[in-house]
Each structure stands twice: as C-alpha cells, then as structure tokens.
Nucleic acid binder design. Structure first.
Lengths: 310, 310
DNA sequence: TACTTTCACAACAATCGGTTGTGGCTCGCC
DNA sequence: GGCGAGCCACAACCGATTGTTGTGAAAGTA
C-alpha cells in the first residue's frame, strides 16, 4: 500500500472530486485518477463512485477512510519522532525506576502536549555526556563528579535533583519499626546493593558514604534482578538496602517491606541535568523550568553531600 | 515515507543484519541497502550503525522502531478493513441508538476478536436490502413488511428482535407515575413522534398500531432532533413519545423522564436480520447464532403484532 | 442542442527500484 | 601479520512505475 495513494484518497474524499484534490496536491487530475485506480486495484475494492459532478465514497471507501486518516497520522508521528528539528525531546533517565524518570513523568503530566522520548542509554556519566555532546540525546540525568570547569566545551549542567534515601527492610529486621534512621545507626547493619556497577558514579558515591559513616555496603555479589533482591530482603532479618526516596518499587503485600527515611544528616545523591548549551529545542527550556520549580532544597546543616559536589 | 522501506527497516532491526533481512524479504542485500539508505535520507537521520558483523540500531533507530511497527499494524488493519474475503463483518443498524446497535455491541462484547464494522446506511428496508444484495453490506436489521416468498432470490431473513415499547413522559404527565400502561390507555393521550419518516416501514407500523387501538400518533411536525424532543417532553404535561425498550436515550437528571413499559398486550416491533444466502463470511454465522441465543419470545397471547408479519 | 465539467485512456518521458558485479572494511583465525 | 569470510556500499544496467500532455466519452446544465 502506497502512502501517497492513501494521501490522495483522503484528499479526494475531502474535496469530493478528483480535480480539486489534484490542485491541492499540485499534480494533474490524471495522476490522481491513476493513483486511485492503483489503490483500488491493490485493495480489490472500488473506493469512489464517479459521476459527472465529482466522486463520492462507496461504502468500502467510507470504511477505509478512517483507517486512511489513522495511517497518515501515524506516519506523521513516526516522521516527527526522529526528524531533526522536529523530533520529541529525547531524555536519558539512566533507569526508568529512579527519580529522573519520576520527574519526567511529572513533567509530562504538567505539559501533556510536549512530545517526550524517554530513553535509557545504560551508560555512565561520561558515556551519557558524550551522547549529549554528539546530539544523540538532548539531555541526561546524572550525578556529575567533576567541577563545571572540567566539563567539555558547550556542555552545561544544573543540579536539579537532591535525592534523599530510604532504608528498605523486611518485617523481621531490627530497624523494621523505626520511624527514621540516622546514617550512624546503619553502621551496625549490613547494606546490600548488588548490581551497583563498580567504577560508576554510583559506586563512588556509596563508597564515600560508607567511609564517612563507617557503613558496610556490599556492592558485589550475583545480580538476580530487583524482584529477587526484594524477595530476599523481605525474608531476611539482616539484609537491608538503600533506595532513592522517589525510586519506584513494587512488591506483594505479603512482603511487608518498610521504607524508612535516612536523616540527621540526610545523605543526598545530587543529580544534574546535562545538556548542550546550543540545543535550541524549545521543550528543553520547558523541562529546565519545570525541574527548577520542583527543586526542594534541604538546609545544608541537615544533609550530607559527597565531597565532589561543586 | 515508503511503507516497503519501513517494512524493510523493521526486518533489518529484527534480523540484526541486512543480508538476513534481504533473504526474509526475498530481495537482494543491495536492494535492502538502497531502501534503508533512501529511508535514512528521507528522515535525515541515520537509523543503523553498520559494522562488519551486521547492523544495529542507532538511538534514532530505536526511537523510530515502535513507530514503524505501529505503522505496519495500522496498514494491516486498513487493508483488512476493506479487502474482500478478509474484511470485517459489515452490518447496517439503521440507527446507532436502537436495539440492533445495542445487540451488536453485545455481540462485540461476547466475541471481541471478531472485527465488526457497524454502519448506518440511512436507507429503508428496500434500499438496505438492495445494498445486501449488491454485497455493499453483509447484513442489515429491518422490519420486513413482505412475505418471505416475495423476497429477492438469494436473500434470507430471520426474525431476531421482538422489540417492546416504552412510553417516555415527563414528570407532569398524567401517566408519569404509572408502572405500566396498556395501549388502550394511550388512546386518551397524544403520542408525538416527529421525524418518523413517512413511507418507511416504521411509519407503516405506527399507522397500523394507531388504527388498532385508536391512538393519536403525530408523525409530522418540524424535526429538531432528539435532544429537543426530550426537552419538550420533559417540560410538557401532555406530550409523550414511544420508544423501543432497548433504545438508548440520555438526558439530564433534571428532566426526570419516565420510561413506562407498554403491555397487555405489548405491541412488538419485529425486526429481522437480512443477509445473502451465499455470503460465506464466518462472522455472519457467529452473529446469527448470537442473535438466536439472545432472542426472547413473549407468549403470543400477550403481544400485538402488525398484520404483515409472516 | 451546445456547452461545461467530470473522469478515464493513450502515448511518451523521467524517475524509481530492482538486479548483477565489484570493492572496501573489519573481524577472527592461523 | 597475512588472509579468508562475511558484511555493507557503490556503479552500471534495465524494466516497471509514475508522472505529464493530449484527447475522448458521459452526464448534467443553459
């Protein structure tokens, strides 16, 4: 099926005659006639009744018309999804479960008309930044463990998310009924975070956090996935894990997991939006405004930040 | 945008390399290469990274892929909507508010996989029957005011709907609080049914009904549409109208309209399904089965039927 | 009847889209 | 490091497609 023929079909259906449709499409009436004839032959169905006063849809044409329009709509969306200068704002969130994804969803609710393309590059800061630099994505969310002056030329960052932490424990854990926990209290317990890839900015952060408060954070061990991790924690009196406050977790009620805020001080995982200064995408400015407006700053005295925060 | 190119794009994305996609599409690798190149030029975006071990999607390709699949899905549906032998069962319901439409919706719920195309031909029995004969629609619902032996050759009918009536009145009407009304009781009141086109089988039916029970049924008068009719009736102490039991009406609560069954005897508007005997569409048999199973027959003693019912 | 407007058919030219043939590149193997 | 295998791209060629112009039949209108 030829989309130009479909477009022509819709034009004729709208115009009511071949000649006007031809004018609208800047081709000759004969070309329109041919295209429709080919489409009809293709579908093995007559789409128009031709009269001396124009063409009107047959019952098959009426049936086909909404499908034809849908086809053109989908084509336009497909085109707009990638065409440079017109495509949706493409933002890398690193993982669809963590705060950036939640904030993007929030942004989408606030601006439903803005086309968004949420991707996960599965890359660390540096690779993601390279993707931004190359224009593969318009923006990415990451902790930026280097001072702004060391960033590549033309790359800009803004700290937009101060993510607090929660301890995730099962009902038999010693801290299961705590309303909040302090980092100091955690020193006595084992924190288990398998799959937190070594050498990434996340591992750096948790290393420094562990050192600062004398914590035992296990980053190694086989990674069976998130569902397995939750099941183990639900079942264990010793195991606990740390999660971002806005990280999305789902578990069965029977797990009876508790999310306990970590405070006094509250360790903060600072994430920045990273984008190219010369990116003219209008939705990018809207996203930055939105993130600014949703930013909540905790008083400095009550938080702990890694040393590399500029 | 060329759908063959889109199809090729999806094939390559699935296969992971041009050669295999070419084999799957029964064309040469060079043709695949050309199609993808044209598509990329068209979209002004690179869709694949070519390596010596195949081709994998760029980020733009990843973004485009779901749109491409959607495009092909919609194309398939558009094609299936009209292609003879594969198209959806096309049924004329005369009006989307009356019992046939309700029953078709019921059928759709019972068989969600069967593709249905519900149309309104805006034609009387004879024109609708001609449409069935010509194959424009697979079936139509109508009262058939002629004996079966007078039907065109190859046309079959089955009485599938015995529609009861309700009186529709406003709260100030004399019958507003009746639980049921008899046709005899209605003789004292004015029944208003504007828009019931003269010369159709509906008008014939209501003419005969009026004669049988001495009713005053107004079929004439300006037709301002259904909403206007309901508003007038809600407001009037005299006006009432008759409606099929399963006819769909919507009105604001403030109208406080009452639907009062007409019984003892219950006038019945008998509608048949009309189809071509040689129509092999499998969904047609399913529809007939369904209608048969839903058919409710009232005892003959309690109903009134027009004389032309065979 | 003559005129206008509709769409379809025929002939021709340009373009498109396929094939075959070939070459450059990269990877893995010896 | 050299070499073969496998991948994709480019070029030449050729038939099919798709547009154009010119023309004609049919039907409504003055």
């Amino acid at each position: 099926m030829d989309l130009d023929a479909v477009r022509t079909f819709v034009a004729v259906a709208d115009a009511g005659q071949f000649q006007d449709a031809a004018t609208a499409l800047s081709i000759t009436q004969q070309a329109v006639s041919k295209r429709i004839a080919v489409l009809e032959k293709d579908l093995q169905v007559r789409l128009f009744n031709r009269t001396a006063r124009g063409a009107h849809l047959t019952i098959d044409g009426q049936t086909f018309l909404p499908h034809a329009r849908e086809l053109l709509r989908v084509e336009a969306r497909a085109d707009a999804s990638v065409r440079p200068g017109r495509r949706a704002l493409r933002v890398d969130v690193h993982s669809r479960r963590i705060a950036p994804a939640v904030l993007l969803q929030d942004f989408h609710r606030a601006h439903p008309r803005i086309e968004l393309d949420v991707v996960t590059l599965d890359a660390d800061v540096h690779a993601a930044m390279a993707a931004v630099e190359a224009g593969a994505v318009d923006a990415t969310f990451h902790a930026v463990p280097v001072p702004a002056r060391h960033l590549p030329d033309g790359i800009r960052t803004a700290r937009v998310i101060d993510e607090h932490h929660e301890l995730l424990v099962g009902p038999r854990h010693a801290l299961a009924n705590a309303r909040v926990v302090t980092p100091g209290q955690l020193a006595a317990h084992r924190i288990w975070m398998p799959g937190m890839a070594l050498g990434t900015e996340w591992a750096d952060y948790y290393d420094e956090l562990a050192a600062a408060f004398g914590l035992t954070i296990d980053l190694v061990g086989p990674v069976f996935g998130n569902e397995a991790l939750l099941a183990e924690i639900a079942d264990s009196a010793q195991l606990a894990t740390l999660a971002g406050e806005r990280t999305r977790y789902l578990w069965p009620d029977s797990y009876d997991l508790r999310r306990i805020p970590v405070r006094h001080p509250a360790p903060i995982y600072p994430m920045s939006l990273i984008w190219r200064d010369d990116n003219p995408h209008p939705a990018l400015a809207a996203l930055r405004d939105h993130l600014d407006s949703r930013r909540v700053r905790a008083p400095d005295a009550e938080v702990w930040l890694p040393t590399w925060v500029s």
